[in-house]
Design a binder for these strands. Structure first.
Length: 597
DNA sequence: GTCAACATGATGGATGAA
DNA sequence: TTCATCCATCATGTTGAC
């Protein structure tokens, strides 16, 4: 039986996935569809509605979950799978190692960081699988734990019986192993056997999967594009913005549904039915995008109204961003301790040198590039010439440069650019998060400039803590330096399985290093290119981890950002068009997870 | 080839005066 | 309501030092 994505320790209520169901009316078919969209099997839904009646959706959900637990328990008994009754928490070792390798090209896999994961078939078995290969070599016993060492080149073979037992204990079916041994011959290595088995599994999956899934996903994309194009043309015909009824306007103040200091601006919202999870999703991009981009993003992401938030309400720097998500919005809480909210709180030593005519209390957006030494020299000379009270035109020039490049006063008449570690601190990352490992100063600024503000994102994600007390499976797209992961970690939400997709090797290294340094107990899988994440690979990943609880990411803003004077082509730009891959992957995951449940 | 420094501006929303 | 002005903006391409 396929895994459920809800941890049974914290059953979600209907309100967690908005009030869409109750607002959709009591129509039986709508109600059934609603729960099917949440990822439950139609048979269970129908049974639960008959038993609970149509009026109480929470009761229906309780009943469905009860049936799910019962069925899972039965399934577990049949499989003699020791451990949790929830298959999500009972992923076999082969699903966490060899299946990844089977499904993914070596070139795309950066590394498998394999850690004791507590999800092994047997509680005293740990698989260590490193560097995109899965050749089983030998078992060693360390502190009473059986460790399967996995190396790129298989070592000398045990005898056939041992091979059979070993592969079986790694989670392969005895029938599969026997068939592989028969087909590959007596001299076949373990590598050959595993390759044969996984190839056979893949062939079976492809035969079923591609015929059914691809057309549906393709049609959906095309339909969305067509609907969006029609809407854009309708707006064009309407003329001025004032006459267009579905234009998204930026709020002022930009506080979304609320920020820690101004809570509960919006107490609840109604999500469109198609947007209701699982999985939860969270998409981010620059608020000040080119015209019509947010309307398009919203149309693709189930007509959800973006939540626009300026991170100046969370830290000492502005960061105006739009977030489209299907998360609950009640009972959010901020990370503690609260980060410094003003420049002087963040950098107290600058107060001594700060001229009274520089009224800044917040930095502007922390970007990917910073002012040059020559610039700070020019500012110093300009101020020095005028003494303590420069004329207005000098003040204007200096303030323009200070605002533009986020300069701070570090001495008499002396300004400086922020250092990378200072930017790390403002954005909520651990000190030295991007330092070392071969990264230049320029690279650090670039990576940081493209990242989340951790406190802001953590505030939005904080609602997940009670829903997933035992941890989450996360699909992190355009991960960058791991802002989402750092936010979840700071919220103390365990990261069970993280599939992180990030093109930049430097960024992947930063996150890998953070993962190791923070002693994560879960599994991290790194992939490089979202465009190569096709339905087949997603299917295998979902099978391996038991489904994703959260799909999070902010696609490239290069072509949408105001700073870009060269290729500001909006969502259709070369990099920013990867938004459509975010949508494609989200849709694909939803479809696969619905089918598996 | 890599890295840092440097020069470069259009866009769109906010604001306020007419 | 219209218009001018102000302002901020997850950036890009070229150059030169090494």
């Amino acid at each position: 039986m396929a895994a459920k994505t809800f941890p049974k320790q914290a059953k979600p209520t209907c309100s967690m996935f908005s009030m869409a169901a109750s607002s959709a009316g009591p129509s039986n078919s709508n109600l059934v569809q609603h729960f099917i969209n949440m990822g439950f099997h139609e048979r269970l839904v129908t049974k639960a509605i008959i038993e609970s009646g149509e009026s109480n959706t929470d009761m229906i959900l309780e009943t469905i979950l009860t049936y799910s637990v019962l069925e899972d328990s039965q399934q577990v008994d049949q499989n003699t799978c020791h451990g949790s009754s929830n298959q999500q928490q009972c992923v076999h070792d082969d699903e966490l190692s060899s299946d990844y390798d089977d499904s993914l090209d070596d070139s795309e896999i950066d590394d498998f960081v394999c850690l004791p994961n507590g999800m092994s078939q047997s509680p005293n078995i740990v698989t260590i699988c490193k560097f995109h290969f899965y050749a089983f070599a030998e078992i060693v016993k360390i502190s009473g734990i059986d460790i399967y060492l996995v190396q790129e080149n298989g070592n000398s073979l045990p005898d056939n019986e041992n091979v059979l037992l070993s592969l079986a204990s790694m989670g392969y079916a005895v029938e599969e192993v026997s068939e592989a041994m028969e087909r590959c011959g007596p001299d076949a290595s373990v590598v050959d056997l595993i390759e044969f088995i996984t190839a056979a599994q893949m062939a079976k999956t492809e035969a079923v999967f591609f015929e059914e899934e691809k057309p549906k996903i393709f049609v959906n994309m095309e339909l969305k594009r067509k609907q969006n194009q029609e809407a854009l043309e309708r707006n064009k015909k309407k003329g001025p913005l004032a006459e267009q009824d579905d234009v998204i306007r930026l709020p002022n103040p930009m506080i979304g549904f609320g920020v820690p200091s101004i809570c509960s601006v919006v107490a609840y919202r109604t999500l469109p039915e198609a947007a209701i999870g699982p999985p939860f999703f969270y998409y981010e991009n620059v608020a000040l995008a080119t015209k019509g981009d947010w309307e398009t993003i919203s149309r693709f992401l189930y007509e959800i109204t973006p939540e626009f938030v300026d991170s100046k309400y969370f830290c000492a720097a502005a960061r105006k961003r739009g977030y489209v998500h299907n998360l609950p919005i009640n009972n959010r809480f901020p990370l503690l301790p609260l980060p410094p909210r003003t420049i002087h709180e963040a950098f107290p030593l600058t107060k001594k040198w700060w001229p009274e005519w520089d009224k800044r209390t917040k930095f502007n957006c922390l970007k990917t590039t910073y002012g040059s030494p020559k610039l700070t020299e020019m500012v110093r000379k300009a101020v020095e010439k005028c003494g303590d009270n420069p004329p207005d035109h000098v003040k204007k020039y200096v303030l323009e440069e200070c605002r533009r490049w986020n300069l701070v006063w570090v001495g008499k008449n002396k300004v400086a650019t922020l250092e990378p570690d200072e930017v790390e601190m403002i954005l909520g990352f651990p000190r030295n998060h991007t330092r070392g490992g071969g990264l230049s100063r320029t690279d650090r600024f670039k990576s940081l400039g493209n990242s989340f503000q951790v406190d802001t994102v953590a505030y939005h994600l904080s609602v997940l803590k009670n829903i997933y007390p035992d941890g989450m499976n996360v699909l992190s797209l355009f991960s960058g330096i791991g802002g989402a992961e750092v936010a979840l970690h700071k919220l103390r939400i365990p990261l069970k399985n993280v599939v992180s997709v990030e093109l930049s090797e430097a960024n992947r290294d930063i996150m890998k290093s953070w993962w190791q340094q923070t002693d994560q107990k879960g599994n991290l899988v790194h992939l490089a290119d979202v465009q190569k994440l096709d339905p087949h690979k997603l299917d295998k990943l979902i099978k391996s981890v038991g489904g994703f609880d959260l799909i999070i990411g902010g696609s490239p803003c290069n072509n949408m950002a105001g700073s870009n004077r060269v290729n500001r082509d909006g969502l259709e730009g070369e990099q920013s068009s990867l938004f459509y891959d975010y949508f494609r992957i989200l849709e694909t995951v939803k479809i696969i997870m619905n089918r598996r449940n």
